[in-house]
C-alpha cells in the first residue's frame, strides 16, 4: 500500500502505487510526505515510521547530509539545483544502518497541489556486484594469462635447449602448446573448476586408437582433477604419447599403449603400459619430456612415479595423493 500525507492527489497515489522504483516524496522543508511499498522494501522503513521526519535522517548517509541540506537551501534561495532532473548514482541508508548503491533522480513538481520533490531510487546492488565480479574475473584472467605466458616462455626456452634443429624445435614446441591448449579448452568447458581425466585421455589418445586392438586405449573411472593437476597431467600424457610415437610402441606396427587408472587408498593410481613394439629401446632419459614428467610429478602433483623399460616397452606408474583428487559424478 502506498502512502502520502496531507497531499490529496489521486495522481500522486497512482505514481506511488504503480512505480517500479522506490519513490520518496519530500516537502520543501525536507520532511517526508510520501513513500511507496518499494521504498519500504528497499530501505526497511514503513511510511508510518518516516512520515513527517527529515529525509536526511532516514535514507541519506551521514557523509552526504550536509551537502543535502546545503543543496536544498540553495534551491529554495535560487530555484536552481544541480542534482535535479537527472540520474546519478549514490549510496543510500537502510534502517539497519547498511548502505546500498542506488540510482537516484529528483524532480521538483507542483502538480500534486503543492511544490514537492519526487525522488525515484533504484537499488543497483546487483549491478554493482556484477561489476565487482567482472573486475575480479578480469584480474584473475590477467594473472592466469601472465602465468601461462611464463609457462610458455619456459617451454620455449627449455625445448630450444634440447632441440637439435629448428624443425625439431618447431615440432616439439608446437606439440606442447597444442596439448596445453587442448587442456585449457577442456578446463574452460568445466568453468575451470575441474577437468575429467577420461575426457583428457580421450582427447590426447583418441587420435592413436585403433579398432583392431592396436594403438592407444584408455580405461578408468570418472575422476575429476583440479585445474593444476589437470594441466600437469595433460603435459605428462603429451610427453608419453610423443615418446611412444617417436621411439616407443606407437612407432612400430602392432604396438599398443594402454592407459589405466583407478582410485586406491592413497589417492589415484595411473598406469601407462606400452607393448608390442618391435625393437623398442629406451630413449635418452635426460630429455625434456622425462625431466618435465619427473618435475611435474614431484613439484605440482605432489605424487610419486616410477618409469621402467620392460622387455616389450615402457611402463610408467604414477600415484597422486587423495587430498588433491576430486570425485567425479
Amino acid at each position: 500500500m502506498s502512502h502520502s500525507s496531507n497531499i490529496q492527489s489521486a495522481d500522486l497515489h497512482a505514481v506511488l502505487r504503480t512505480a517500479l522504483d522506490a519513490v520518496v516524496v519530500m516537502r520543501l522543508d525536507g520532511t517526508i510526505a510520501g513513500w511507496n511499498e518499494v521504498a519500504t522494501r528497499t530501505f526497511g522503513w514503513t511510511f508510518a515510521e518516516t512520515e513527517g521526519r527529515p529525509m536526511s535522517e532516514m535514507i541519506i548517509p551521514q557523509q552526504y547530509r550536509e551537502a543535502h541540506e546545503k543543496g536544498l537551501a540553495h534551491y529554495l534561495a535560487t530555484g536552481e539545483g544541480p542534482v535535479l532532473d537527472r540520474h546519478f548514482e549514490i549510496s543510500a541508508l537502510r534502517n539497519d544502518g547498511s548502505e546500498i548503491p542506488v540510482e537516484l533522480s529528483i524532480t521538483p513538481t507542483d502538480q500534486f497541489g503543492e511544490r514537492v520533490f519526487l525522488g525515484f531510487l533504484r537499488d543497483i546492488s546487483e549491478r554493482h556486484e556484477a561489476k565487482r565480479q567482472q573486475e575480479l574475473l578480469l584480474g584473475e584472467l590477467n594473472h592466469r594469462v601472465k602465468n601461462m605466458l611464463a609457462v610458455v616462455s619456459g617451454i620455449a626456452y627449455l625445448t630450444a635447449r634440447s632441440a637439435t634443429s629448428v624443425d625439431g624445435f618447431t615440432r616439439a614446441f608446437s606439440g606442447r602448446l597444442e596439448a596445453l591448449g587442448r587442456a585449457h579448452e577442456i578446463l574452460t568447458a568445466g568453468v575451470w573448476r575441474s577437468g575429467s581425466l577420461t575426457t583428457l585421455a580421450e582427447a590426447l589418445l583418441g587420435p592413436y586408437s585403433d579398432s583392431e586392438g592396436g594403438g592407444a586405449s584408455a580405461k578408468g573411472p570418472n575422476v575429476m582433477l583440479s585445474p593444476k593437476q589437470f594441466l600437469s597431467m595433460s603435459m605428462i600424457l603429451h610427453e608419453l604419447i610423443t615418446n611412444a610415437t617417436k621411439y616407443g610402441a606407437l612407432s612400430a606396427p602392432g604396438g599398443k599403449v594402454v592407459l589405466e587408472w583407478d582410485r586406491v587408498a592413497s589417492g589415484l593410481r595411473i598406469d601407462w603400459k606400452e607393448s608390442g613394439g618391435s625393437g623398442v629401446v629406451a630413449p635418452i632419459s635426460t630429455g625434456f619430456g622425462f625431466k618435465m614428467i619427473a618435475l611435474s610429478v614431484r613439484h605440482e602433483l605432489g605424487g610419486t612415479s616410477e618409469m621402467r623399460w620392460e622387455d616389450d616397452g615402457l611402463a610408467f606408474e604414477l600415484h597422486i595423493p587423495v587430498c588433491e583428487t576430486i570425485e567425479g559424478p
Partner: peptide, 24 residues
C-alpha cells in the same frame, strides 16, 4: 615457485648464468 615449468626455466637460466640452485 609453484609452477614447475617456470621453476625449471628459472633454474636452467640461473645455472646457465653460473649460479648454483640450492633447491626448488
Amino acid at each position: 615457485e609453484d609452477e614447475s615449468m617456470v621453476a625449471w626455466l628459472l633454474q636452467t637460466a640461473l645455472e646457465d648464468a653460473g649460479h648454483e640452485i640450492a633447491d626448488i
